[in-house]
Design a protein around this nucleic acid. Structure first.
Lengths: 244, 244
DNA sequence: TCAAAAGTGTTCGCTGTACACCCATGT
DNA sequence: ACATGGGTGTACAGCGAACACTTTTGA
């Protein structure tokens, strides 16, 4: 599953002699993977099938390798799990409590990732014990992973209120209702439909299509796409800041 | 993380070998120490007296030890330098570019710290090559330390706009002008005197003393103290958020 | 015809911002 | 008397928040 540790142990001893005693530590990344299924905010977890804490739910993670930086390690871990490599990733915090991992002193750098659940059907999924949980119904996790999720949720909220980050979680085409559902999930509160739409429209970064999504209502709802070019031009020109 | 290696001691050793060969790294902390001298925002730097990059300016840092977590390491580094141990500290970001330190692969966790320059006269200062620079006039730094400072400044700005963090940087008693100077330094823009005072007063977390600071003007300026109890009570009761 | 979701504007209060003059005192 | 920084209030615009009814169409 995690193949960080599969090379020959030649210069192992050298390093052992120098650093094992005082200074070197294991460095891991753990990914808080948020998803959205057009209805609710989800989080991707795996069930451990090994000891300790076997059978318990955990974040996806892996160890940093010598030839990569942390961002690259997070991308690799994510790609190993999902087969995807074009995912929004952001470093959150580094956790270092001495006994946070009962097995061995391990420092872990938490990342959060945003995925559209439906568009990415995970053909490349490597771990069949992975499961999407509604963010409200996530189980208790091992180690300090609950704490990591709390921080990631706060970060997501903050990001959603400043950058149009939500669009990373949506399919290319989406309805206003879906966008609103997403923001309600992230902010964890109900929003007024008219105020929300007025606000979004005033930002002027969406393109309304002629197409309708007929799958939910009889009347059908217009589909929109995010106009990334327009958004980036605005950021450049007037320091435009997305704010809901 | 994932310690597949905890079932039996044999297993453990096997994995230990793997880890030491591949995964262990040096972990450092670097501190961005902000100070305020009643006039301007400052940053504390030291001149390196060892290779590599000897003679260049750098942040204060040190390596994580086995018996401490990162927060404790940051406290220790700061205390070693300044003799102070009751300082506001906050983790910012972890830097891991492969060749960021030409000497050896080192991952560094950046912290920012807030100190009132005048109240703390650094009797315990250990490194005589330390120097306070005006934030606008800081020299070029080694490695990725410039980048760290940029992020720390952004974090300080954000914090100053939500929590009354500025009071960490001020002496116990301060004038409105000093508080405004501080916020102008942090936000890097001029503020309107009347609007600032009105805003601060409406927050109702300062106590106006009868005492005046006569050192600057002929008229003298009233001194204030931050009412921490009142602030904390407000946070509890009405989820009060400091916002300037 | 009815059920279920989509779509659409206006009003009001608050908050941020712009702005100018008198006060107290030491020299 | 004057120079220096301290201290004070108002008016306006823009934004967020509250709020209800009509439209569409498949069943």
């Amino acid at each position: 599953m995690f193949e960080e540790n599969l090379e020959a142990p030649e210069n192992l001893n050298m390093h052992l002699n120098y650093y094992q005693k005082e200074d070197q530590v294991l460095l891991a990344v753990d990914c808080i993977i948020f998803g959205f299924d057009k209805e609710n905010l989800k989080i991707l977890l795996i069930k451990r099938n090994f000891e300790p804490e076997k059978g318990k739910w955990s974040l996806i993670g892996g160890f940093l390798k010598k030839n990569e930086n942390l961002d690259e390690a997070a991308v690799r871990v994510l790609e190993t799990l999902t087969g995807l490599n074009d995912i929004y990733l952001e470093q959150i915090h580094t956790y270092s409590k001495i006994d946070r991992d009962p097995g061995q002193r391990t420092i872990s750098v938490a990342y959060f990732a945003l995925i559209d659940v439906d568009s990415h059907r995970f053909d490349g999924i490597q771990i069949d014990s992975a499961h999407w949980f509604d963010i409200k119904e996530a189980p208790n996790l091992i180690f300090d992973h609950n704490e990591m999720i709390q921080k990631a949720k706060a970060r997501l909220k903050r990001r959603a209120l400043s950058k149009p980050i939500g669009f990373e979680l949506l399919p290319e085409k989406f309805t206003m209702r879906q966008l609103q559902n997403l923001y309600e999930s992230i902010l964890d509160k109900k929003l007024d439909k008219r105020n929300f739409i007025n606000k979004i429209n005033s930002l002027d970064v969406l393109i309304k299509l002629d197409e309708k999504d007929m799958s939910v209502s009889r009347k059908g709802a217009y589909l929109y796409v995010f106009d990334k070019d327009k958004y980036e031009k605005k950021v450049e020109e007037d320091g435009f800041i997305f704010k809901i």
